[in-house]
Design a protein around this nucleic acid. Sequence first.
DNA 1: GAGTGGTCTAGACCACATC
DNA 2: ATGTGGTCTAGACCACTCA
Lengths: 251, 251
Amino acid sequence: MKTVDRSPAALPAREPETGVSRYALLAREMRQRVVKGLWPAGSAIPAESELAQEFGVALGTVRQALALLVAEGMLERVQGRGTFVSQGLSGASMLRFFRFRDATGEVPQSTILERRSVNATAEQAGLLGIAPPARCLRLKRLRSLQGSPVLLEDILLPLPDFEPLQRLPLKSWDDLLYPMFWKHCGITVARAQDELTFGAPDAAQAAALGLQPRHPCIRVERRAYDFAGRCIELRTTLGDAHAFHYSAETR
Amino acid sequence: MKTVDRSPAALPAREPETGVSRYALLAREMRQRVVKGLWPAGSAIPAESELAQEFGVALGTVRQALALLVAEGMLERVQGRGTFVSQGLSGASMLRFFRFRDATGEVPQSTILERRSVNATAEQAGLLGIAPPARCLRLKRLRSLQGSPVLLEDILLPLPDFEPLQRLPLKSWDDLLYPMFWKHCGITVARAQDELTFGAPDAAQAAALGLQPRHPCIRVERRAYDFAGRCIELRTTLGDAHAFHYSAETR
DNA sequence: GAGTGGTCTAGACCACATC
DNA sequence: ATGTGGTCTAGACCACTCA
């Protein structure tokens, strides 16, 4: 059987050395461009045809790489308009773990109870990937629906990345935190990992939530990451266990 | 600009009438073949090239349709071997919502406490899509780890589909239910929807779990569906809230 | 109308599994 | 050796968005 003489070059489907496919390499390169800020969040990336030309591959190969990054949540495609770098999670609301009456889809009001800079514990510093003294911004935040407190949050953000939030007047804080991360600190939240457990609040926590001491609560421990995979937030959220309601699908 | 004369026919990318793409139509057809049993669970479906020939489309179009069904969990592809119809969920273990000490990854032992045929309530019949008198098989089942009861389940299965389980000697029941559905009733569980809430057990339930009356519990309400989208199981599971532990990712 | 992503074709070669 | 899915090419046309 004769082989076809392809021009300009008959490249193998995979890198012979590493065994990594070409579209996977493309995806890796484009991921780097987002992480390094060459393609900022919200901006449009070059058209498929341009990318194909730049990387010297066929259109279909570029599309395969793009599909990977779309599945990861890093890119978003809009027919007729272009391909855009994701702005990251906007809310990732803790409210999805709860169901409070007469409050479906509503954004709860936020009150910052406390804002201090502290040294993270060794464990926290390890999770955040920062070295001692591991300076952090610590927030205590109460979230309310129709005037009633529903969630109490304890948030740890590494400094100096979140320095702008240290000075920002508490009055000008928004109800949603992640858009503020982006607006004031240029930080995008790409992914959040939540661990739910059952537990009781301490006396102060119960009081802040308007609950009896030792009232059963659900505790959500969150770790949030940026597109580089770096942990950029540690958060503990407490809410009334009787309001707990979560829906999970398996397939 | 001249158009290329493609043979044998220049079909449009979409059905002009419906606006549905060709690969979506292909996927719909193949989905039907699985639902109707023409392609039974676990069997290999025809090769890509055969499908392309049968449907009169290019290979890439077939691949696009297959990718859809793989994403749905209906098909599984194995390089070099072929494409197979999924056997469905094997476990979908309730244990993923809990963390009992010294028991990670272990399959809990199952004991059937009760097996009766009952009439479903109107609500249950509606969910199961069956008409009155809505005969069902009702199971009460205790699941234990290292001899200690951990989960109490109340399961409702529509008759006559699950008739074989009505007669099967309780001794020959397996620890996992879904493989039994398939083995004895030919029913595949494609998808399960779980709703988690907080609540207290009644006296009998607490006793069965070896807990104090009113001990805090997590309640899991499950609806399981086959590939045709029909609900084929209603289940309520109770477990100690202190053992509750769930991990959720947002991206 | 120009530019974007979405769909589709008709091939080719590569890597893997099985006999 | 044969057959499978996985990767890749170099085109074409379609549907959508926006200036």
